[in-house]
Structures are given as C-alpha cells and as structure tokens.
C-alpha cells in the first residue's frame, strides 16, 4: 500500500512554476495536476473558471475506468486520454504512475503542440515527484510528518460542534 502523499512549500512552488510554463508554452487555458485518487494538487491558468474539485474527481474516475479497460485487454495502461469538444479540448496524461496532468485548450492551440509540451513538463514533474517521495521518507524517519501527530480529542470534537 502506498503512503499518503505529502507536499511541502518548495515542491509546490516548483510544480506550480512547471505548470505555469506548460500553460504558456502550449497556449492552453488551464493546466492542472491531480493524483490518481482525485485530489487536486496544483493548477495554473483560468482555474477560477471551472469547478476544479469536481474536475479532479471526474478526471481520476475517468483515468481509473480507462485503466480498468486497458487491463481487460491486456495493456498496462493507456497513458494519454484526449477528449475533443466543439470549443474546448481536454488532454489527460499520466505522470510518474500516480499523478494525472490535465491540459484544457481551445483553437488557439493544437493537439500536437500540447502533446509535445506535455511530454517535457511531465518529465520535470516526475523529477520533483521523486524528490518529494525521498523527502517524505527522510522526514518521516526523523519525525512524524503528520501535523496531526499532536491532535487532541478536543480538536476533533471541535470540528463537529457546528
């Protein structure tokens, strides 16, 4: 079983800057990163325009279903999904086996350009991810990584007091 994902400020900033660059270089409207469980990690562009929480969970569901399809026919995975709309298109790709990179673009860009830029950005994100995992292990060995280590019963009860 995988450990939960832990992200610190430094990696968050690096990932956000990779996403920002990808958005500019691929002329996309929105770029964002979610994990395979549907948790949103970071985003760039006009993310206020869409409901990113829903988008993240549906993307993860979509990828999970497609993964299931791949396994059924004996493929390891379909690493890229592409949905073409009248105006907007969605390009979804899997990064480092546990993250999903989503790019939303319109006629100002093209599938070819997006694919090209995504490949480069994905490699960079994967490097950050590897470092993140190494760091989580290191920190985890030194101290409890969870901010909840010292949580009290009162803290938890307070959440539900309304």
């Amino acid at each position: 079983m995988d450990a939960g994902l832990v992200m610190y400020e430094e990696e968050f900033d690096r990932i956000t800057s990779i996403l920002n660059r990808l958005r500019v270089e691929s002329s996309a409207n929105i770029v964002f990163l979610v994990d395979k469980n549907g948790q949103q990690i970071a985003g760039a562009g006009e993310i206020d325009r869409v409901d990113t929480t829903s988008l993240a969970s549906l993307t993860a569901g979509n990828v999970a279903a497609t993964d299931g399809l791949a396994k059924l026919i004996g493929e390891k995975e379909f690493s890229i999904l592409f949905h073409e709309g009248k105006k907007d298109n969605i390009h979804i790709s899997i990064v480092g086996q546990r993250l999903i990179l989503v790019v939303i673009f319109d006629e100002r860009s093209s599938l070819g350009l997006v694919r090209l830029r995504v490949r480069k950005a994905a490699a960079e994100i994967e490097r950050v991810l590897t470092q993140m995992e190494a760091k989580a292990k290191e920190v985890g060995a030194m101290e409890a990584a969870s901010p909840f280590a010292e949580i009290t019963d009162e803290d938890i009860d307070a959440l539900f007091s309304e």
């Binding site: 832990v6 968050f12 469980n37 901010p147």
Partner: peptide, 15 residues
C-alpha cells in the same frame, strides 16, 4: 490515501 499539502495547508481524505 490522505494527501497533506503543507503549501496550501490542507489535508484531503477520501471516504
């Protein structure tokens, strides 16, 4: 699998 984001100071869990 919980996701702890120190940058955004939030924790996400799945039920």
């Amino acid at each position: 699998m919980s996701f702890i984001n120190y940058a955004a100071r939030e924790i996400n869990v799945k039920i």
